[in-house]
Each structure stands twice: as C-alpha cells, then as structure tokens.
C-alpha cells in the first residue's frame, strides 16, 4: 500500500527553496529507491529516477514534477535582529502578516520566526488601506541580534512553516503542495509500475528551480532527450472567486500550443477508457510550468501537461483533494501501458 498521508506530510515538511532542493532529493531518493532501477542528481540539482522498460527501442518517457518551493531569503539584518526578506518565487505580500516561517541558519538548523504586525490599536487610519510590501514586512526570530548575526546572513533561506492538515472529504491543506504533491504522485506511479509490464523507460524527473523560471526541467530534458515528456504540476482549482479546475473531479489535461495534440488525445482516451474524470485546461500561452521549457529543448520534445487542481496556490494553506492524486496515478499508469515501439512513429506530424 502506498501511504499517501505519510508521504505528503513528510515531503511538504522539508526545506527546499528553489536552488536548494537537496533535502527533498535525499528524501525522495530513499523513498523511491525500491521502485526504480537507478537514479542520480544532475548539475542544476534535479533528481532523476529511472524505471527501465522491457521494450527493444529504449524509448524514453520523462515525467517532470518540480520539487522546489517558494519562500524568501534574508535581504538584510536590521537592528534588534529583525530580518528584511526578499522573495524567491512569487509570494503575495498580502498574506504574510502574522505568518510563521522558518529561517535556515548556517548549520542548517531551522529557526522559527514570524512576520511582524502592528496591532489594530496602533494602526493609523491611512495604514489600514495600505497594501503591505516587502519594504514594510519584517521577520522576528525572538533571537538577540548578536545571535542572529552569528547564525544568519544575507541570503539565508526562509520557508513557510505550515503543518500538513486533513480537512473534510479527502481535502488536505499545507504548504508546498505546489508541487511536492505531484512528486508524491510520481512516486506512486513508480510504485504502481513495479507490477505493470511496460516497454518504455520511464524517467521520473524531480526538477529544481521551477518557481524561478522552470530551469531544472529544461536542463534535465536536454540531458535525457526523452521521446515524450509529461509535466505534472498544480493548476488553479475552483475556489471562491475563481472558476478553475474543480477539486475531486480528476486532473486537468493541458491543451494549447505548448502540448502535442496526439499525446493530449491519448491521455484523454486513456481517461475515457478507464472512466477517469478529467477537465480540459486550455493554456493559450506556453510557459509557466516545466512543460514550457521542456517543449523547446534541442530539436523539440513532444510534451503534455497534467494539472492537479489546487486552491490558494502559493500560500501556506494550499488545498488539494487526494482523489485527484489517485486519478492521476491511474491515468499515467494506463498511458504508460500504451507506450510501445509503434507509438514513436505516431508522434510524427502528418
């Protein structure tokens, strides 16, 4: 049995800012080892785990899920040890007041801290309508300035502190479900493939630095040269004020110039055959996900995107529905089974 709750809990607790994903990689390496044949870490810090297929052509499917998270780095140490921060990746400054974080010190210890607030008693009327900015947000570690300067420097990483929580009806809340939840889906697919015959080699790429420009996926694809690549990332879920991908109703399948029509159609067909629900997700402009950079590597790579519906993206309380994760495992496993020697020829444009 694949323990979703345990895996999601553990992987989302880990520190892994863009460019500093090594703790996440160590954890995945350990957990996925029994399901795959080999693995390595590449130059830009993406982790590649390979499950060999039985086919003669050694065709390669790359499944890319990024494992970095948004957060901050220390921008300056102020008087009394308060910290000014600079975001790494897109964080909404409006959600930060009174939000708890961890700053990682030079010994890799996690120091708890909180974004300061001015209490309502002291807020001036004109400040009530002011939107907070990174000029006005500072972190309080409770440590003395001396100690702060000893353990923390400009550039020390900061992540949200947020515990993985079960809500009602298969919903879960936590930080960095974007996109570690998809990494866990990849692990579940690898687990599933242990008992499935498949022709192609499957390269599970746990990519780095997506949040700062989808860097890890592109360089990994360059190295692997896959025949087909599927990026898996979170998509905007339906929530109050936004009509997006409904939660619990299966993945989004990306459709648009970024995605190869044949793969999109095959994924849809697999879903239909297995009665797996899905939502078509039109993406008029390429980019934003790993699929954006993978598609244009070398002479081009046939690419598709599966989206896991997620609410409150880029906050410490992102919400997903576990049913959707399981649907994606089913869909990808079914798709991988269809990959054979002939499949390659079908990818040529007519």
């Amino acid at each position: 049995m694949f323990d979703w709750e345990k895996n999601l809990q553990q992987i989302t607790d880990l520190y892994g800012l863009s460019g500093e994903e090594s703790s996440v990689i160590q954890w995945i390496q350990k957990e996925i080892a029994p399901f795959v044949d080999e693995s390595y870490v590449n130059t830009l810090g993406s982790f590649v785990a390979i499950k060999k297929g039985k086919g003669s052509q050694r065709a390669k499917l790359m499944i890319s899920t990024h494992i970095d998270e948004i957060g901050f780095v220390v921008g300056a140490i102020l008087e009394n040890g308060f910290l000014r921060v600079e975001p790494r990746g897109g964080v909404d400054p409006k959600i930060l007041q009174a939000q708890e974080c961890f700053v990682r010190d030079i010994h890799n210890e996690m120091i708890p801290c909180v974004f300061s607030t001015v209490p309502p008693h002291l807020v001036k009327p004109e400040e009530r309508t002011k939107v907070p900015s990174y000029d006005t947000l500072i972190l309080d570690t409770g440590l003395e300035e001396k100690e702060v300067r000893k353990r923390i420097h400009v550039g020390s990483g900061i992540i949200f502190k947020s515990s993985f929580t079960k809500l009602l009806s298969d919903h879960y809340a936590g930080k960095t479900l974007d996109n570690r939840s998809c990494a866990v889906i990849s692990m579940a697919v690898a687990h599933e493939l242990m008992t499935v015959l498949h022709d192609w080699d499957v390269y599970f790429v746990f990519s780095s630095q997506e949040e700062v420009g989808t860097k890890g996926a592109g360089t990994s694809a360059w190295e692997i040269e896959p025949n087909v690549a599927i990026a898996m990332d979170v998509g905007f879920g339906s929530q109050n004020g936004h009509d997006g991908l409904p939660l619990g109703k299966g993945p989004g399948i990306g459709i648009g110039p970024n995605f190869t029509p044949k793969i999109v159609n095959d994924l849809r067909e697999c879903a239909d055959n297995k009665y797996i629900p899905f939502t078509l997700e039109p993406c008029a402009r390429p980019g934003g996900t790993d699929a954006g950079s993978i598609q244009i590597v070398r002479s081009g790579i046939p690419t598709a995107l599966l989206s896991l519906p997620l609410r409150y993206m880029h906050t410490p309380v992102e919400v997903l529905n576990l049913k959707d994760c399981k649907y994606i495992v089913e869909l990808l496993t079914a798709y991988i089974k269809t990959l054979n020697d002939e499949y390659l020829e079908g990818l040529q444009w007519s």
Binding site: T43, L44, G218, T219, S220, W222, E223
Partner: peptide, 9 residues
C-alpha cells in the same frame, strides 16, 4: 550560463 544545455554550476 547556468541553463546552458544540461546545466552549468
């Protein structure tokens, strides 16, 4: 430089 080909330290 960083994203050249398969990546550069």
């Amino acid at each position: 430089i960083q994203t050249t080909k398969s990546g550069v330290y």
